[in-house]
Amino acid sequence: MERDVRYETDGHVGIVTLDRPQVHNALRRQTYDELTELVRTTEARALVVTGEGRSFCSGDDVRELMSGGADGEAPRPEPRITPAAGALLDTDVPVIAAVNGPAVGWGMELALLADLRVAARRAKFGELFVKRGLCSDVAGIGRLAQLVGRERAAELLFTGEVIDAERAERIGLVGRVVDDDRLLPEALELAHRIAANPPLAVAALKRGLRRALDPDWNDLGAWVSTTLGELFTTEDHREGVRSFLEKREPRYVGR
């Protein structure tokens, strides 16, 4: 079976590349499973996550993961944290997102789940869940406000606005913006600086940040999945998916 995620090593640094450029690295179930497994089993001292081609990640593959509410029975997620999110939140390995292009929907969640974000100038960011009649995953709720403050987070979540890399840097969503051709070298240089430090101390520091700053991710994940199960059944979700596939403006009705 052809893999959706490519994994390479550069010394003590692991490079995780979403490798579905033909669909802008959209995530299907196989992609989520491979990402989860790679993060849980890596022996690297630091990870760099990026996307193949000109996109970081366009979010869920709508035709596979989100269209159940449009044409068939609505998905009923288990009341638990998304396994890929759980793996990224639980790992003691520092994760750097090298955002090489649009990071929208769960693509933005993936960037938020990293410890550090380096963005190419062509990168864009958007929490698009509201446009599909859904709520974001745990990172959009639990991490975004930590980075940009509650008011800016609320604006991004409630409007579904897509912002460019320069604005993302100004509001603190990303740590640095670099020229497109310098993205991976800059991210790898940062990863190697981290990986050169004592790994036990780095892992302890990451656990300390979780203890000091993070909510109960499992409880939040259960709330998100339960809420998504309800939102998947709404007319607004079905309209959000249909309008996206039909490339037209949606008509929401509040049901």
Rank of each mutant, 00 (worst) to 15 (best):
G59I: 05
A195I: 05
G160C: 11
N25W: 00
F56K: 01
P75L: 09
A44P: 06
E155F: 08
L113S: 09
R76W: 02
Y7S: 03
E52C: 07
A70R: 05
G240N: 06
D92I: 04
V49C: 02
T91G: 10
R255N: 11
F232W: 12
V224I: 14
R121I: 08
A98C: 06
V178A: 06
V162S: 05
N100C: 14
W217Y: 14
M108F: 11
A114N: 04
R28F: 01
G140Q: 12
A123K: 01
Y252D: 00
V162H: 02
D137P: 00
E52V: 00
I81D: 06
I15H: 02
F232K: 04
R29E: 13
N197F: 08
E34S: 05
G101E: 03
K131M: 00
R255P: 02
L213N: 13
C135D: 11
D19L: 00
Q30K: 14
Q22S: 11
A85E: 14
R248M: 00
G126L: 03
G208P: 01
K124Q: 15
P250K: 13
E8V: 02
A74L: 09
A98F: 05
G14F: 02
D60F: 13
P75Q: 07
T50A: 03
L183N: 08
A203H: 07
G175H: 12
R255W: 03
R207C: 05
V62Y: 10
